[in-house]
């Protein structure tokens, strides 16, 4: 077993017996966020990133070529929940970067506030991502947007935020949950509808379905023209 730099900056891999792990460098030594495994190597600490808990990690495991989030990036994260994936994004952008984390449910955001207090690169925001005017004064222009919201109009929400906050040439990542757009439709068809909608406004760089880590999910990596 040996730790290696992933082809994308800020991400590390550990080849194990049969299993390959993805990790991020822990910016707060000795602090776990959600009970994940911590691996130490040469005075540095790495947190294991679980693809069954994080769609972004699942996409990386499926070999996505680019995510546009790297050390120093300013990121808008929509649908932050209790901060599982956010904590890894926070590791990834490091101390030079920053994450605006928007979440609608007070109950789960509570956990994220505790995470944000320890890490000084996350700003938690309680607001409805569908109404960016609620947090317009709390977010600055960003290098990347990541959205994971299980809403029927998730594409519309995504495009609204991309329009308002994403710098030109910046990356926009959308995790699509087919089941929350339409339960009766076949996931493949929903994904292709989403693709058509996105292509009107953005350039699609990469696309991955997240089986077997997440059922009926996919991730679009887009770039703002």
């Amino acid at each position: 077993m040996s730790m290696q730099q992933h082809k994308l900056q800020g991400i590390y891999t550990l080849e194990g017996w049969k299993k390959r792990l993805l990790l991020t460098k822990n910016i707060i030594s000795g602090q776990q966020v959600y009970g994940e495994e911590i691996i130490k190597e040469r005075n540095e600490e790495f947190r294991v990133w679980d693809p069954s808990k994080s769609k972004l990690c699942a996409a990386l495991m499926k070999g996505v070529s680019q995510i546009g989030i790297k050390p120093g990036s300013i990121v808008l994260y929509l649908g932050a929940a209790s901060g599982t994936t956010v904590s890894h994004v926070s590791d990834l952008v490091g101390k030079e970067g920053f994450v605006f984390a928007v979440e609608f449910a007070p109950r789960v955001l509570r956990e994220l506030v505790f995470v944000a207090e320890k890490r000084n690169n996350i700003a938690p925001i309680l607001a409805d991502a569908n109404q960016p005017q609620q947090y317009y004064y709390q977010v600055l222009p960003v290098d990347a947007i990541y959205q994971d919201i299980a809403q029927r109009n998730q594409v519309e929400i995504f495009l609204k935020n991309v329009y308002l906050f994403l710098k030109h040439g910046g990356f926009a990542l959308l995790a699509v949950k087919a089941r929350s757009i339409n339960v009766a439709e076949k996931p493949k068809r929903i994904f292709s509808q989403v693709r058509q909608e996105l292509e009107k406004h953005l350039t699609i760089v990469d696309y991955r379905e997240l089986e077997p880590f997440q059922k009926d999910h996919c991730l679009f990596v887009c770039k703002k023209r």
Binding site: F98, V113, A116, N120, A123, L126
Partner: peptide
């Protein structure tokens, strides 16, 4: 927004921004 945020860069350092966000969010919760 980019023009304005560049202009006021000295005033929008991230540490106070984060501190304020946490304050506001605590109250909102």
């Amino acid at each position: 927004l980019e023009l304005v945020s560049n202009a006021i860069q000295e005033a929008i350092a991230f540490p106070p921004w984060q501190e304020r966000s946490i304050m506001i969010t605590r109250k909102a919760i």
